[in-house]
Amino acid sequence: MEVSVIRRFGRFLAALALTAATTVVGVTFTAGAAHADGCYTWGRTLSEGMSGEDVRQLQIRVSGYPGYGAVLALDGVYGPGTRSAVIRFQQAYGLGADGIAGPQTFNQIYALQDDDCTPVSFSYAEWNRCNSDWSGGAVSASTARFNARVSMWKLQAMRRALGNVPLYISSGFRSYACNSAVGGASNSRHLYGDGVDLVGSPSLCRLAQQARYHGFSNILGPGYPGHNDHTHLGNTPSRSWSAPTCGI
């Protein structure tokens, strides 16, 4: 097996062991009792009213669960919006949906992410076929890479809601040169790293419709000029949805 597959299987076994331990002994462990993760390891249980970098890291992973038309702020403050997103995440994976992020929630996240912090169903390589160092766009390379990772977590949530079906990416990050070469808009979200074009199945309209629930403020699809062969998702400062053929 590939190393990444072995690593994921190990995380899955550790999650099962922890769940069994908490069930048999009846002790409430802190998040520090969970196994270490190659990307990020939480050290405390998080709940509404708390703040810090660990809250922000949680927000990134549940950014695809803000509810219809909403976008979850990545501000490190565990407010009502974060609590609601955590509840939706917990419901999506059959966990106790109390809005408190503890060992079970964190272990589910660990099982969903690779050591480079991307979700298991997506990768930096498929998101960036333009230039490997992520430079030349509208933001710094590190910001473009971060923006891409957040959008990947949103797609991971969307993928789950669609029944764990594969989602096919035709275009992700673009430098200005790459964007110009394909005739992209001058203000394209691809230049910022968070823009992504999806093709194939599910249908383009199904993709556009579902995306409304997963934190994408920019949705362009069939019926919008130049988008009859793909559905575009991104994160504009204000909502920009248009897929007339799909009723959006």
Rank of each mutant, 00 (worst) to 15 (best):
A141P: 14
P103W: 07
D115H: 06
L74V: 02
L16D: 14
G81H: 09
F173V: 04
N164V: 01
I248V: 10
L13I: 14
A92W: 04
G38T: 10
N228E: 03
D115I: 07
A85L: 02
G69T: 07
S201L: 09
A17D: 15
S188C: 09
S238M: 11
A20M: 13
G226L: 08
L191T: 00
T236N: 15
V71R: 15
G64W: 02
D116Q: 10
F89C: 02
A181G: 12
H230V: 03
S188H: 06
L220T: 01
L95E: 04
S121D: 13
C205T: 01
S180L: 12
Q108F: 01
V86W: 02
T236C: 08
D115P: 05
G26I: 11
A125R: 15
A208K: 06
G183N: 11
G163L: 05
S242K: 13
A15F: 06
L204S: 01
C246M: 08
G172P: 09
L46I: 03
G76L: 07
W134T: 06
T45L: 04
H35N: 11
G99M: 09
F12I: 13
L162Y: 04
D197M: 07
S217C: 03
A161W: 04
L74R: 08
R88V: 00
P80V: 05
R174C: 00
Q156H: 15
V182N: 09
D54K: 02
P202M: 07
C39F: 07
S240Q: 15
A31C: 15
I169L: 14
V77S: 10
D98M: 11
F146Q: 14
Y192Q: 06
G52Y: 05
G26W: 11
N228R: 08
V182S: 13
I169Y: 12
G200A: 04
H190I: 00
R239K: 15
P166N: 09
T41I: 09
G43I: 03
I248A: 08
Y78P: 07
G64P: 10
A157L: 06
A211H: 03
A14P: 02
T28N: 13
T45W: 03
D133Y: 07
C205V: 04
Q59K: 07
I169Q: 11
T118W: 15
H35V: 11
I60S: 00
T22E: 15
L18S: 12
L167A: 08
W241L: 10
G137A: 05
T82N: 08
R174V: 00
T236F: 13
F106A: 01
D114I: 02
Q104G: 05
F122I: 08
A185Y: 14
W241Q: 08
Y213K: 07
Y78C: 01
L46T: 00
P80F: 06
Y176E: 03
